[in-house]
Simulated assay, not measured.
Amino acid sequence: MVGKFATGVVVVTTRLDGVDHAMTVNSFTSVSLDPLLVLFCAEKLARFHDAVLEAGVWGVSVLPASMEDASRFFAHRGRPLDGQLASWAHHRSPAGVALFDGAIATLEASTSAVHDGGDHSIVVGAVTALGTPSEGAPLLYYDSSYGTL
């Protein structure tokens, strides 16, 4: 049933001890406008989980349909961390996390709360920076397949 709910696709990034970490996420949503809060869910077994919680700051790149390759790449477990961002143009947010230049929207957030969500943690963040670096149709995920509007 949950696979029948269409979602957008983002890559969440963080930087810990000079190392970039990234993960494809489709469990991303806005929470509040005042203050501006967003959330995503991270699987507790993923190495990204501990890195993002320890770093306390993270970036979100909302992917356009043209970046399906990035979504697939950052969804794979166990890939080497060194050089993983090299295939996609990106820049650093004010806090130093990577944001994709080809994204249709970006944001930076600092973690304001973490809630237990079974085998995932629900990570809530206060948005500290916003951007719209590119234009394009959003990448969507529905019924285990990618699509667009």
Rank of each mutant, 00 (worst) to 15 (best):
M1W: 13
A70Y: 06
A55V: 04
A98P: 15
D116R: 05
D116C: 04
G102R: 06
V52D: 06
V19Q: 07
H91M: 06
R77M: 03
P64D: 01
S32F: 08
L140R: 00
W88V: 11
S110N: 15
Q84V: 05
S66A: 12
A95Q: 11
D17Y: 07
H90F: 11
F5R: 05
S112E: 07
H21E: 08
N26A: 07
S144R: 13
L85Y: 02
A109N: 09
V12I: 03
G147C: 04
L130D: 12
H91T: 05
L33F: 11
P138I: 03
L130Y: 07
P138Q: 05
V57R: 14
A105D: 02
F48C: 11
L107V: 03
G18L: 10
A86L: 13
G18R: 10
P138G: 03
F73L: 14
S66F: 02
P133I: 08
A129Q: 01
L140C: 01
S61F: 00
L85K: 04
T106Y: 03
H76Y: 14
V31R: 15
R79D: 04
S27A: 13
R47T: 10
V25I: 15
A70D: 12
V2M: 13
R15I: 12
V12T: 06
T106R: 00
T14G: 11
L140N: 01
D34N: 05
H21I: 10
V123I: 07
L139Y: 00
V124Q: 15
Y146P: 01
L107D: 04
S27F: 14
M1N: 12
A86Q: 15
D119I: 12
A113T: 14
V52S: 10
L99I: 05
S30T: 10
V57Y: 14
W88Y: 13
M1F: 11
M1E: 12
D116F: 02
P138Y: 02
T29S: 12
V2T: 14
V60S: 05
F40A: 04
T24V: 01
R15M: 08
C41H: 07
D69Y: 01
A95F: 06
R72T: 09
L63Q: 11
S112N: 06
S121A: 09
